[in-house]
Design a protein around this nucleic acid. Sequence first.
DNA 1: TTGTAGGCGTTATCAT
DNA 2: ATGATAACGCCTACAA
Lengths: 353, 353
Amino acid sequence: MTIKEIAKLANVSLGTVDRVLHKRGKVSKETEKKVLDIIEKGNYKPNIYARGLVLNRSYKIAALVPNYNNGEYWEMPSKGIKMAEKNLSQFGINLSILYFDQNSVSSFTEKAEELLKLKPDGVILAPVINFEAVKLTKKLDEAKIPFSLIDSNIPNSNALSFIGQDAFQSGKLAAKLLCSEINSKGTISIISIKNNENHNKTLQQRIEGFKDYIYNSNFIANITLIEHNIHLGTANWEENLTQACAPTNNTVGIFVPSSMIHHVAKCIESNFDTMSTIKLVGNDLIANNVKYLKKGIINYLIGQRPENQGYLALESFYKYLVLEKQVPQKKYLPLDIITQENLMYYNDDVVSS
Amino acid sequence: MTIKEIAKLANVSLGTVDRVLHKRGKVSKETEKKVLDIIEKGNYKPNIYARGLVLNRSYKIAALVPNYNNGEYWEMPSKGIKMAEKNLSQFGINLSILYFDQNSVSSFTEKAEELLKLKPDGVILAPVINFEAVKLTKKLDEAKIPFSLIDSNIPNSNALSFIGQDAFQSGKLAAKLLCSEINSKGTISIISIKNNENHNKTLQQRIEGFKDYIYNSNFIANITLIEHNIHLGTANWEENLTQACAPTNNTVGIFVPSSMIHHVAKCIESNFDTMSTIKLVGNDLIANNVKYLKKGIINYLIGQRPENQGYLALESFYKYLVLEKQVPQKKYLPLDIITQENLMYYNDDVVSS
DNA sequence: TTGTAGGCGTTATCAT
DNA sequence: ATGATAACGCCTACAA
């Protein structure tokens, strides 16, 4: 069913049908009703090709995400965003990615300024520097630019959508997996490894989830929990890490709530004679972690599909702006449990390659 | 960059550019080269809206999959296929689903006939009745109708794409998970529960993978493996199942290579005093299995994203026929490890809802 | 071998 | 309040 057909059936012109469809007024009640009836009965759906052709709209989406070196976590969301752009550019979605330095607030504010100057039609934001991100969302609200959040959420923001993970639950899952590997009494060490001083809500929530599981399980009778903080690059951080890996001589497990568990794995590898029985659970399928998972030093990794997060974020703008569909306001991606035996099919698990 | 622009730059007409683009010949080498150069440099991409509008093609895709009752495995691939149709119908993809009875060869051949009469532009096939499916693929080849396979593969067929799982690896993973839960010597029972007599290659491969893991691990010293076959609905099948659940009085684990592990779980629940310590690992996130996973009677389920399989199968035809892109010839979906702690975010894990 | 014109369905503008 | 018409970019048929 086309507009032409509707017009013929209603004995009116294309223009009139168009005015009805787009509620532009200047149509008598009478004819409006007649046209609407026909549209209803005929189950009219606009031809998106014709629509796309004549409107010839294109949308500028700007993404503001942390920069990265090869193999680091933030490479993956970026990869997903770029892949989505490859598929969606022909539908009028144009992307600019801006990278900021997680360790530098000024870098963030600079890039945020730059982003606003672009006057984008939509923004993808990774609010890892929480306080500054909040300021940006306020400005975006004022400018009426819709934005999506990835990785972590800003509660009570009016983001178009949030795409990320449930960090608390991720921690619980980590605890469950670690406990399933441990058969004896001993100490579990929670090591937060970070490369900056920012307060990281995700890490905190994972740790809380981890403890929640332990304290509410039977394991707590046999387990002592110890927490450590390591700042990469500070003086003696490597010695401190080695200390943290085996704080007691009956350390049975280590949990690292960031993507940095490969540092622990490396440490264990170099002290293999004394540390080989320690079980390791961490997060994220980055190359360095995968290496130690394959070697059997890391027992489980928990994945949160970061590429998908990026992909879905851009795709949701396509759906919202181009297809004018509704998009889910909140999307938690599954927490994938990765081990040697199922690793191979996650490594190339990207949406619609 | 448009065809018009190319034509102007090359000092030729639209028609000539078009002939070059579509290799219709009747263009002098000279002008062809000139035009191709400009296309190359300008990175010309056809406007898909204009293209879609003028071609106004629509494609009929027919899917031939097993029928199902609510909550059964085959509901999920169908769900995925239907969801894809919802998103893709406006792009000219039309779907007909035909359902056959897995227990009836004649039902399959009938529906296969019906399918061929539809003269579809593409076929999605679940080759669970392997021998008959092969015959159908031959006919499709003759009719030059491209087909995609889901769930299980037909090696050496020239399917457009296969979308499914690595069943052998799935079995290995099941063994790994089961062993991680078991801390003492004992018997592991592999119970094949089926509702038909068909030879099921997937089950067989899962069992082989399972054994492969056990026999090549340290566990084999402590584990005795026993295999059972249960046919639902045959005389005494429930007693037989109860027998199979605890073939010895030190049964420590059970693996069910089909989606039927809920029958075992139910059996264990009714004999909880004697069987509560038995660990269970099975396949597929169907409602009945999920119920027992939540109760803690099933320890792990392995998922293979059946909705995704269906979704991707239809989407691959969209990409192939509408967008004229290449599609991957083989796609193994990840083997998801599901436990109480990460279940919630898998239950609504469907692509692009 | 090359060029031209008409039309796909929708939108928006201009004339009535 | 309504109708006619041009334009979007591409494809095809036909004319030169």
